[in-house]
Design a protein around this nucleic acid. Sequence first.
RNA 1: GCGGGCGUGGCGGAAUUGGCAGACGCGCUGGACUUAGGAUCCAGUGGAUCUAUCCAUGCAGGUUCAAGUCCUGUCGCCCGCACCA
Length: 828
Amino acid sequence: MEERYQHDVLEAKWQARWEETEAFRITEDTQKPKYYCLEMFPYPSGHLHMGHARNYSIGDVLARFKIMRGWNVLHPMGWDAFGLPAENAAIQNAVHPYAWTRDNMDNMRRQLKGMGISYDWRREVATCQPDYYRWTQWIFLQLYKNGLAYKKLGYVNWCPDCATVLANEQVVDGACERCGSIVVKKALDQWYFKITDYAQELLDSLGGLPGWPEKVKVMQENWIGRSEGAQLVFEVAETGDALPVYTTRPDTIFGVTYMVLAAEHPLVEKVIQHSPHADQVREFVRNVQKLSDMDRTSAETEKEGVFTGAHVRNPATGELTPLWVGNYVLLDYGTGAVMGVPAHDERDFVFARKYGLPIKVVIQPPGLHLHEAIMENAYVDDGVMDNSGQFNGIPNEEGKKRIVDWLEQKGLAENRINFRLRDWLISRQRYWGAPIPVVYCPDCGPQPVPEDQLPVMLPLDVEFRPTGESPLNHYPAFYETTCPRCGAKARRETDTMDTFVCSSWYFLRFADPHNETEAFGRARTDYWMNVDQYIGGVEHAILHLMYARFFVKALRDLGYVGCDEPFQNLLTQGMVLMHGSKMSKSKGNTVSPEDIINKYGADTVRLFILFAAPPDRDLEWSEQGVEGSYRFLNRLWRIVYLSLQNCPSLKEAAPVGNLSELPRRERDILYMLHKTIKKVTDDVENRFNFNTAVSAIMELVNALYQYKDSGETMPSVTRTCLENLILLTAPFAPHIAEELWTEMGYETSVHRESWPVWQEEALAREEIEVVFQINGKLRGRLTVPSLMEQNEVEETILSMDRAKEAIGGRQVVKIISVPGKLVNIVVK
RNA sequence: GCGGGCGUGGCGGAAUUGGCAGACGCGCUGGACUUAGGAUCCAGUGGAUCUAUCCAUGCAGGUUCAAGUCCUGUCGCCCGCACCA
């Protein structure tokens, strides 16, 4: 055995060994419980960053731990390999997106192997490979056939820099999530997935995910945005058109003093036909549409509107109120029209005051009487109805129901539930993505590509243009085709799918990655699903995590999977910080995992990442901290080295026998060992507190040094301690554990060993320390036999000089004992 | 504004059920070994005062024999959502 810990030599050795022996190859095994441990697969940007290193270190500890605990562990890795950066690289560096992506995957795979992560590499998938995207296209067709994929004309988010449309989820603060450009609205015919069909279930089944962080569930809840209210039908007086509005406050219908339409509302043009205000309205609409999405949806934007000249009839009162167009009304929420109740809605109040519209109080607060003229704010809370005809005097909550019932009988109202969630826009005007398998026939219309013609191959020999326009539009061999139905000349869809489509089902493919006849076999997914532990960044809280949930539910309803949810438990890791802010290229504060691995070894990097903070919290990078982890591994190495040197017969020593016959010092170190086994097991399995698990192992090592230096040691005890120490370390620092395991005389992999089990017998103590308090303040401590009766402990303490002195002649009122811990003497 | 989270030594963090605040590590101080030490080992390390005690978990109250932990109020920071009718 080398005296020095040579991380580079032994890590290379074990990584090669694991690869040769396919050490982490896994297949279904009904004899064992299964465990599916998944880290979010990366976009192949080229290099692992510290966030990746953290993500995969966390996953690897769990996977290796679960293997040792006897689970059949699926731990796969792949590549989210379609997407814009590859195309941008193609335009800028004249390298093909495929070559760029492939080279990046090669490099990152090498880096992952250099971290010693326990992946079953035989299951590797890349979403850009035809044998993968073939099935992405197949899923599209299943959704299409079942009415869950459709094309519609709509005002969509357009990123001018990326030259493509974006989903609502990809627009952040009015800007493109990827490049930061201001997103504009465009009317385009686009493909959507009908995620809104699952809005209620996506909301409800969050309740069945106790293993998800509250924060993520709340974010999804907000995004789905369920609201209960009613649709009320007004009538445009001048044209006779019905104008339904959605409101959560039908109880305020008597207080409506105006109505506002969205700028794009289809009725706008009709109601201004004969209006003297027509030109003014048209200009207003043009100005609104010029605004960026950010300005339109910002709460700070001044609410503006213009009178159309037309009026609406209130279904409750029969009164006519003016019809306006406003910049703050959204076309695609509710009905694109809002009733204005200035007395009871803050926004309406501001709007009415600005334009001199009347305010009518219809809800009176308890014990007060509001007057329109002197109100400074809208009254939005509950109260009693007023100025509301036959409903006067009724509490407004009850009024909501009664008004809807009343108008419903006239066919002018119905209860409605509205969601903020919109359908998922999945088409992208980009090249590097899975082609949408549809053909447009001049006679038959849009036709799905027959399944036996999949995949619709993405041609590789295309020409990239600096305009950013998809090269597929200039590649006749791709878009010129024939109609699958009538055989006539037809044009192939040149849009590709959002990469989030590809990543919405990869966890299913991992269960059956080489299936050539199906996306995945039902038996395989039935065995492996759900993912037991999913680990990744919180930035996917809405996008990926909701799309994947939708996919699983849709595929379940189509009979392809048996589960309701993809991810049973979710761990959202914290960010890696440098000097308090997130490591990022733009800030120039990144540290490359590979550089640190070269210097200290993968085990050190993993150990530091796991030790420096709990996984869900942000982690401050510290190279001094890394050195601390490196020192620890050296200490670990030396304790084994020195022990073997001191006692060459260590490897042959018999295991520890009867505990009660051992001397005190040996029982103490074994107590420490078993306490550590218990602590590490609990921390990893139940709490994901890897940082305290590591610190417990460090304490054990410290104790072993003390034991070694305390005099003559027993080989059997030393051996027991060292072997268990190595086993405990194995999931965290797998290479050094493997090496030390062979040094202990084993020829098998430490990762195939069973996880240590603590013995209650070893944890039993003959003596325990009890502290005593006076009025809750610590005043002393005392070692007593653990079997001593509690009243005897109390008496012993009361008889101590130290205690008498602390009591100081005061009267003992009562004594509170926590057995095995403390005695509190209450005096006055 | 709404929602989620956080606030403990010089720093990262521990304290799992209300029961010894500061585990473990970093850093720092002193010492040993040494030609040397940025290796290793030993000792110390919240503050004030030094046998003992007092103060201390953002701040102010409260409950309790006992509070970092529970309750009320308050301040600060981070993250997410935000004209959703």
